[in-house]
Nucleic acid binder design. Structure first.
Length: 1098
RNA sequence: AGUCCCGUAGCUCAGCUGGUUAGAGCGCUACACUGAUAAUGUAGAGGUCCGCAGUUCAAGUCUGCGCGGGACUACCA
């Protein structure tokens, strides 16, 4: 017996299926049962379990699950090793919050050992919550043996990889400009800079400084047309005057136009000439002063006179020297105080000349290095000027001492000094947004810090090339966002001055002249032994490779000097990018396993991981193994609330995934997410959408199954008979099977092409429109009428195949309902040897059953039926009232043949006795004609418009002529065009004397004349309907036989006389009796006509 | 600031290599149907396809410039 249910309850199905999976270990079987040599490799991007999962995790993991389940059902072995990301700043921050400490307290109030121990605990805080979600949403991943990034084995592999970089000379120590908080005494990560509230508007004193040009061979041309010998200055703007003493160069844009302007210094009144970008003149000069009175100008006057004198391209200024602005100290390397040319300079603001302080700006440093110019670092790590800074020595550049009102801004003093010395052209307050340290609330500095880098720039070309072999979904992320990122690749800054993370395995002598990089525990052990002997120590490899234990190890150099570990940790992104190797502890263990599972066929994460995990996987694989790490990748979008806002606890619009899953069911949630938007588009998550999916899609599929189960149980259909041959099946069965296999083919291709949304939508269309609303609706009678014979068996077999195939097609997206449906069917029929749909194989496409002509003519049937019903509606004639005929203009012989093949279906659907096919020879059809732009456009080109006008006005005779001769000569603009039938779209327009309905090229007319026979039959059908309703009210079984008594009624009599056999058969009545004065149920028939009916069960 | 995604009916989204009446579902209104019934059918209302310019015989579709939402990277005078 097929199981029958009272109603659809998705959460209940989830539970039952989960129990089944667990008891029978279906996941294990789905992996173990497949051949290891036929693997589909998936990498799990490790989540961090120190926070709770959100609804977006359901989305991300649904995608992963769908692709993996699909390939498993294609016969692949899909191992899915889970993993946990355990290091990094978020963990540290959480611990600090829990303990109520700051970074400064680490090592003082709390030991590093205790701190790290706490991190280790915290990081798995919500592991059980995550595991719970994984199970409940039906995400199949191996949770028993996950990789964990803080384990020694994992760290050892990471060390192995780092050593590989080191020996390839791709790992180096360098000096870069990084965000730095003098208050906290630490560098900040970009993550910290991007924390909410980090950027704040501040008011700074800005200065346009005058850098005096040195007149020499290089710069002489700047004076060429000058009569007097006024001093010449380059104008450069800065929002950070405190960096001016550290200035070592100026930069101009190569393509920017610069002008020389004669004017006066507004503070000193001294005549000067200045150079700045042409497009920024108006920013600094009042138009009223142009060609003003130089002679009458006094310092402080409002309008400063100026005149434009000469102009040059930025590239011409290359190498021009200038006097150091504030000469306290000079760099001891490089040829400083020159004009440099670089494209980063813009004319957005400032003067188009950029002041470069290479110690305090990343761009500054980059350009200075390009030209080999050194730097000055006139501010120390506390944020105050160094001793050499003259009158400013010891002063803090910002209020880092928390002096509040007592703090006097050194920026202002610098500005005043410049003003006095005729070196300031303009001083003003300026409001802009500037990053602040989230911990001290003070503005950060950009400061040069020591860091370890991976020389990714050295391998850039190869990484770009390898990327081109990766299949990105969507492609634009791969080419655009990721591709551009690779094109502009910078060296990868690995260093983090933190505590909880993988320690950099590099030991150095005090002077940095000798160093060692350790690539394994065994190597460390050997080095320790050497050091112990040489230095007389008794060290051993620590049990925990984290700080502080690893810091205590002292090694010895070749020359016998002691070496200490570089205290840096490495970027956690390196951890996750190492997972293809480290999850197997390669190369120390599992070499075979690793090779079988490298690279990945598929990965998927949020698009925000493009420069995160996607990059680190790619970089490590490309640089060390000359391979991609993954062949296919889906980068998923965000999950927003239904109004398109980001979900957050703060806004109270976050959706609880557990509540959603338990109330709506996992499958409805998954199906909704997948079918609603492309995975890479942002999803506007609306709970009402899940209800819709659940009602419309799962409800319909459930109803279809219930319908099948109800009658299959009555008829004891268990699919024991041999398959009906193609010839034995009626047209409609062939059609639904053809559609089914077309669907199977498309869905298979779409899953294979990583397009789950398209697959889901195709399935929905099939289930709702084709299977339920057409096949089942039209075939209902076949299931409950008549004997258990060939036609009935064909119907059962067909519907069974549709349902079981659908179960397989939906299984990747809706694993629970797919399983439920499959088992309900297959457990009874035992047609397939699988205990689970997830152990079965995707259905094979029966190409020979796909019949496009058949699908086309069924399309005609649907459209013609729809037009017929539409006409009935207009004429207000009930569908139960049979009509004599519809009239259908025949477009061409093929059309007629196609419609004739499905005629019975149309007649039954719209309750009409016959179709009258009329050809144009009868003269009652008016035809319409349109040009076929697709075939004509290319040939006609410019004449297309004229041609369309001509064709549109062709009359009936001409259309008839075209149809007869199959062609037409068109003349436009003296040109002849020979058109064929293909170049026209001819349809039927009207049938004279009839009310018609049209749908594109098809037109239908309905004969609404009623004969007495038709009326009687109409009444008979009304009677059947009323009796059926009464049967239902009386709660008779669908198989009960009955006896019917009716009151005498003039309208009803002819119907009973002529159609009593029909009525009896329809309502399963043995007797149909007319009784005078019957005491029965009164029901209304039509037009207010009433009749009494009484039923007895026989 | 740069790169990428998105912008089509009240809502969620289709719309293939450009081809002439721009679609679906939900929601709304009315009517019908009923041995699947929290389903279904028919009809109706609802669109400057974000804007502007260009290419073309022809643009929702291609190009450019904007606008709005989002993500990432950066924040620099």
């Amino acid at each position: 017996m097929y199981s029958e249910y009272d109603h659809l309850n998705l959460p209940k199905i989830d539970q039952a299926i989960l129990e089944f999976w667990e008891k029978e270990e279906i996941f294990d079987k789905s992996v173990e049962g497949r051949d290891p040599d036929n693997a589909f490799v998936f990498y799990e991007g490790p989540p961090s379990a120190n926070g709770k999962p959100g609804i977006h995790h359901v989305m991300a993991r649904a995608i992963k699950d769908i692709i993996c389940r699909y390939h498993s059902m294609k016969g692949k072995r899909v191992e899915r090793k889970g993993g946990w990301d355990t290091h990094g700043l978020p963990v540290e921050l959480q611990v600090e919050k829990e303990l109520g400490i700051t970074k400064d307290d680490i090592g003082n109030k709390i030991s590093v050992a205790a701190y790290n121990a706490h991190c280790r605990e915290t990081v798995m805080k919500y592991k059980s919550v995550w595991d719970d979600l994984t199970v409940k949403m039906g995400y199949w991943v191996d949770l028993d043996d996950p990789y964990i990034t803080f384990k020694n084995e994992y760290i050892e592999t990471v060390w192995y990889l780092l050593k590989k970089f080191y020996t390839k000379n791709l790992l180096y120590k360098g000096y870069t400009i990084q965000p730095y908080s003098p208050g906290a005494g630490t560098g900040l990560s970009t993550h910290e800079l991007n924390m909410p509230g980090a950027y704040r508007d501040v008011t700074d004193t800005t200065v346009v400084a005058q850098f005096q040009v040195v007149r020499d061979d290089t710069s002489d041309f700047l004076w060429d047309d000058m009569e007097d010998r006024t001093d010449l200055y380059l104008l450069a703007w800065t929002t950070t005057p405190w960096t001016l003493p550290s200035n070592t160069a100026l930069a101009v844009g190569p393509a920017i136009n610069y002008v020389r302007i004669r004017t006066m210094n507004p503070y000193t009144g001294i005549p000067i000439r200045v150079i700045l970008a042409e497009s920024l003149i108006s920013k600094w000069f009042d138009p009223a002063g142009e060609h003003g009175d130089f002679g009458g100008y006094k310092a402080g006057d409002k309008t400063v006179p100026w005149v434009r004198e000469a102009e040059w391209k930025g590239s011409e200024l290359d190498g021009v020297r200038y006097e150091q602005l504030l000469p306290y100290l000079q760099p001891d390397d490089g040829d400083a105080f020159r004009v440099l040319v670089d494209a980063f300079v813009t004319t957005e603001d400032g003067t188009g000349v950029v002041h470069l302080a290479p110690s305090f700006g990343a761009d500054d440093r980059r350009v200075a290095q390009k030209y080999g110019i050194g730097s000055l670092t006139m501010v120390d790590k506390k944020g105050k000027f160094v001793e050499e800074a003259g009158e400013f020595a010891g002063r803090y550049v910002k209020d880092y001492q928390d002096e509040g009102d007592q703090f006097t801004a050194v920026d202002i003093d610098i500005a005043v000094k410049l003003k006095k010395e005729n070196k300031a052209f303009n001083i003003q307050k300026y409001v802009h947004s500037y990053p602040h340290c989230w911990r001290t609330d003070k503005p950060i500095l950009y400061y040069p810090l020591d860091s370890w880098f991976i020389r990714s720039t050295a391998m850039k070309e190869r990484l770009v090339e390898l990327n081109k072999t990766i299949n990105w979904k969507p492609a634009s992320t791969g080419e655009g966002r990721f591709g551009n990122w690779l094109e502009n690749l910078q060296d990868w800054n690995l260093s983090r001055s933190r505590f909880w993370g993988i320690p950099l395995p590099i030991w150095r002598t005090a002077d940095g002249s000798e160093e060692k990089c350790i690539g394994s525990i065994e190597e460390l052990d050997k080095e320790i032994a050497v050091a112990n002997e040489s230095l007389g120590l008794e060290q051993s490899v620590p049990e925990d490779l984290h700080r502080p234990y690893i810091d205590e190890i002292v090694l010895v150099s070749e020359s016998g000097e002691p070496m200490k570990r570089e205290t840096d940790l490495i970027d956690v992104w390196f951890d996750s990018g190492s997972m293809p190797y480290a999850q197997w502890h390669y190369p120390f263990e599992n070499e075979e396993k690793f090779k079988e599972n490298y690279p990945a066929d598929f990965i998927s994460e949020g698009v925000d991981q493009t420069r995160g995990w996607f990059f680190t996987l790619h970089a490590i694989a490309g640089m060390l193994f000359d391979s991609v790490a993954f062949k296919n990748v889906i980068s998923t979008g965000l999950v927003l609330d239904k109004n398109g806002q980001k979900m957050s606890k703060r806004h109270g619009n976050a959706i609880d995934p557990f509540k959603t899953l338990s109330e709506k069911g996992a499958d409805a949630t998954r199906w909704y997410m997948i079918s609603n938007a492309q995975p890479w588009d942002n999803l506007k998550f609306d709970l009402a959408g899940i209800d819709e999916v659940s009602r419309k899609f799962f409800g319909t599929l459930y109803n279809t199954y219930s319908f099948f189960a109800l009658y299959a149980n009555i008829d004891k259909f268990k699919y024991e008979e041999p398959d009906m041959t193609w010839e034995e099946r009626p047209e409609i069965d062939r059609w639904i099977l053809s559609s089914l296999h077309t669907l199977t083919k498309e869905v298979d291709e779409l899953f294979g092409a990583y397009e789950p949304m398209q697959a889901a939508r195709k399935i929905m269309y099939f289930v709702d429109d084709q299977l339920s609303n057409w096949y089942v609706r039209l075939c209902r009678r076949r299931f409950w009428k008549g004997e258990y014979g060939a036609d009935k068996i064909a119907a059962y077999q067909t519907l069974y195949e549709c349902l079981t195939t659908t179960a397989k097609l939906i299984a990747p997206i809706a694993p629970f309902f797919g399983e439920w449906l499959y088992k309900n069917l297959n457990d009874v029929s035992q047609l397939e040897p699988y205990e689970s749909v997830h152990l079965s194989l995707m259905p094979t496409v029966k190409e020979d059953q796909i019949d496009q002509a058949l699908e086309e003519r069924m399309g005609y049937a649907k459209r013609i039926s729809s037009l017929g019903l539409s006409l009935r509606k207009k004429e207000q004639i009930r569908v139960r009232q049979p009509l004599q005929k519809i009239i259908l203009p025949v477009l061409d012989p093929r059309f007629e043949a196609q419609v004739r093949a499905v005629e019975d279906l149309i007649l039954a659907e719209i309750n009409v006795k016959q179709i009258q096919y009329v050809t144009d020879t009868s003269g009652i059809i008016k035809k319409s004609i349109r040009p076929n732009f697709k075939t004509l456009g290319r040939r006609m080109g410019k004449n297309m418009k004229a041609a369309a006008a001509l064709i549109n006005q062709l009359g009936q005779e001409e259309i008839a002529e075209i149809e007869k001769s199959g062609g037409y000569q068109l003349q436009i603009d003296g040109e002849d065009y020979a058109l064929t039938l293909e170049d026209f779209i001819i349809g039927s327009e009207d049938i004279e004397g009839w009310m018609v309905a049209k749908d594109d090229e098809i037109t239908v007319a309905l004969d609404i004349q009623l004969s007495s026979d038709l009326m009687a039959e109409g009444i008979a059908r009304e009677l059947v309907n009323r009796i059926q309703n009464l049967r239902k009210e009386a709660e008779y079984e669908v198989t009960d036989r009955i006896e019917v008594e009716m009151s005498r009624n003039a309208t009803v009599l002819p119907a009973v006389e002529k159609f009593s056999a029909y009525i009896k058969e329809e309502v399963l009545a043995d007797e149909l009796i007319i009784t005078e004065n019957l005491e029965g149920q009164e029901v209304e028939l039509i037009d207010g006509e009433k009749i009494k009916i009484l039923l007895h069960k026989n």
